[in-house]
Amino acid sequence: MRYSLRQIEVFLAIAHHENVSRAAEQLALSQSAASGALKELENQFDVQLFDRIGKRLKLNEQGRLLRTKAESLLALATEVQEELSTDKALGNLQVGATLTIGNYLCVDLMEAYLQAAPEAHINLNIANTERIKHELLNFDIDIGMLEGEIQHPDLDIQAWREDKMVCFCSPEHKLAKKQQVSASELKQQSWILREIGSGTRQTFDRAMDKSAGKPQVRLELEQTEAIKRAVSKGLGISCLSEICLEEDFKHGNLVPLACNELDLSRTLYLAVHKHKYRNASLEQWLKLCQEG
């Protein structure tokens, strides 16, 4: 074989960081060793995989075509190594999840996974939908768990479970005691919402556009708990998944606002890069998601 797995590993690290120094640091190599491995790979096949732009190395078309196959190859090689060195087939996992899923649904999944693989390590990265999509396409994570709808030809996206969002306010708000509120009444309120790019915001904006039009957005916050606290202080009303509001409604800290005119139902999704090698760890996580 004219190439080594180390060369492939170096190539992928440089593709990720677009910088030889950072790639070398990740792989615990000297900069010269990393640079030499890439140069040797390119010379062996008389190809150039990167365009050199100052100190940055940007994948060219040849490099992009190689990267998807190289990711699968390295993942398979890693699995073979793990199975040869241990009797546990399940290994480490990189999971990306949007806010509600990461904070409220992933804990049970991690517990179930670690029961089967107690020595494994799970890295859970919580970010908004657009960020998770970027990380999937960059092979930074093994699987994405999303509240927002995304489309990309390189991603395998499947419906996971249904969810419903709920508008809510503080107990002292003027709408708190109403059995039903209209979409026009909601539009007139000051809103505290998730940032644009989040799945929660995507669902809310779509529902309001269909029923009442754009509301007055007073605050945009990236954290669910910050939104709930701001609403409880009377700074405005909001809309979040009912998953993260159950305890607040139960204790009366926040009050749901019923509005039959708004369709706030949505689907949660699982996404994997089509060129990602589905090892035993990834398949086990997908199985747990479908069973949960």
Rank of each mutant, 00 (worst) to 15 (best):
F139L: 09
F11D: 02
W285P: 14
K250S: 12
T129F: 01
N60G: 05
D156Y: 04
V166H: 02
V10Q: 03
S211H: 10
Q7N: 15
A280V: 11
N92E: 00
A116H: 11
V231T: 00
H251F: 01
Q26R: 14
Q44P: 06
A226W: 02
G54D: 05
T203D: 08
S265K: 08
S182R: 06
T129S: 12
N43M: 08
E162F: 00
R52A: 09
T224L: 13
M145E: 00
C244W: 06
C167V: 06
M1L: 15
K210R: 15
S211W: 08
H173F: 01
L76T: 06
S281W: 00
Q179M: 01
C289K: 03
V80G: 08
E119N: 15
K274H: 13
D51C: 07
D156K: 01
S21M: 13
I8F: 06
I237N: 07
A33E: 11
N92D: 13
T224A: 06
E42W: 05
Q180H: 02
L66C: 13
G236Q: 11
V272H: 08
A37K: 06
E130Q: 15
Q26P: 01
I237L: 14
T86M: 00
L73G: 06
I8K: 09
L136P: 10
R278Y: 07
K88I: 08
R67S: 15
N92H: 09
I101E: 04
I150N: 05
G63A: 06
H173S: 01
A183N: 03
E225V: 00
L109V: 10
A280L: 14
A207K: 13
E130G: 13
Q44D: 14
E18F: 11
V181D: 01
L175P: 01
A33F: 01
R161A: 02
A176C: 09
T68K: 09
R229Y: 09
A97C: 03
Q7L: 14
T129G: 02
A116M: 10
A97K: 04
E79R: 04
A120D: 09
K177E: 15
E61R: 08
G63N: 03
L219M: 13
L124W: 03
H121V: 12
V47H: 01
L49H: 03
T224C: 10
H173I: 00
H152G: 00
G96W: 06
A280M: 11
A23L: 04
V217R: 11
C239V: 04
C289T: 04
P153A: 02
A75Y: 00
S21Q: 05
L282H: 07
L245H: 05
M145Y: 05
A112N: 03
S182I: 01
A23W: 05
L90M: 02
I227C: 13
W160A: 07
E185A: 02
L65I: 08
K214Y: 14
E242C: 07
G144Q: 11
T129N: 08
G91I: 00
E135H: 14
L5A: 10
Q62T: 15
I132K: 08
L12G: 10
D142Q: 02
M110W: 00
E283R: 15
L38D: 10
N92Y: 00
A28K: 11
L268C: 02
V47M: 03
R229L: 11
I141H: 04
K133F: 07
I196V: 13
D108P: 05
H275A: 13
S30Y: 00
A176Y: 12
I101K: 04
A70L: 02
S35L: 02
V166S: 05
E18Q: 14
N138D: 13
A230E: 06
D87R: 07
